[in-house]
């Protein structure tokens, strides 16, 4: 049995239908535990005070914003190479989730930056890159919206996703070149010494797991909706033809 079996819409509907309740449940539990633990039961940071609690939303949403784009890139490539409709529809389904994550990361970042840096917004490389990522999500979704024929739309958005990824990466480096930042380095890394301390670390991990599960659940549900939409269009076309 290979991975490609899930490219069959029927098979995908069966499997995703079985996974969906588990993913939703896991998302709800992990998000509740992570955020409640983070909000109520972690100490304040000695420098940042209680604003450190924003980390449990800010870091997971920022991670998801980037990872969702990568996932869209992979599914777009699969669509272009192997022409599996589920893959293209999954990319389409993921884009609004990625946009929401980008907005959450930007909003929480602004609210965190105000007391810490004394400004809502700074043209810092990380912040600017996220704003650019937001524009890329908007363009991608607008192109899906604009084209009537679903297969052409899938093709063109996949190409846009490919080219956009290259330019998003270029923008990231260009922006680094252009300004030094206020933003601190990565909050999580495999090097133990670089990490945030353990009291913040474990609720953060739970919260990240919650965001991932939420993404999986939403993505499956949205993809199912898109697949149903395709079937509906096919039925309509057949009836008009008959």
């Amino acid at each position: 049995m290979s991975l490609w079996e899930y490219a069959n819409p029927k098979k995908f509907m069966e499997t995703s239908g079985r996974i969906l309740p588990w993913a939703s449940g896991l998302a709800a539990v992990a998000l509740c535990v992570g955020l409640v633990w983070g909000f109520f039961f972690t100490p304040d940071d000695y420098r940042q005070g209680s604003t450190v609690k924003i980390i449990y939303i800010h870091v997971p949403s920022a991670m998801m914003a980037i990872n969702i784009w990568v996932m869209m890139l992979v599914t777009s490539l699969i669509w272009l190479v192997r022409r599996h409709h589920v893959s293209a529809l999954a990319a389409k389904a993921a884009a609004p989730i990625g946009l929401t994550m980008t907005l959450i990361a930007l909003a929480t970042g602004a609210l965190w930056g105000q007391p810490m840096w004394g400004t809502w917004w700074a043209w810092d490389p990380r912040l600017t890159s996220f704003l650019i990522l937001c524009l890329f999500y908007l363009g991608y979704m607008a192109l899906w919206q604009a084209i009537d024929n679903p297969d052409t739309a899938a093709d063109l958005t996949a190409v846009l996703c490919l080219v956009g990824s290259v330019f998003a990466l270029l923008s990231r480096y260009a922006v680094n070149f252009w300004s030094q930042g206020l933003h601190q380095g990565a909050s999580l890394s495999l090097d133990k010494k670089e990490n945030v301390s353990d009291v913040f670390y474990f609720p953060l991990l739970v919260s990240i797991a919650g965001f991932v599960a939420l993404f999986v659940a939403l993505m499956l549900l949205r993809t199912r909706t898109e697949i149903r939409g395709r079937r509906l269009r096919a039925l309509m076309a057949r009836q008009r033809g008959a």
Partner: peptide, 9 residues
């Protein structure tokens, strides 16, 4: 800011 960012998100 803390409650605001939780509520907004």
């Amino acid at each position: 800011p803390v409650i605001g960012s939780y509520v907004a998100s």
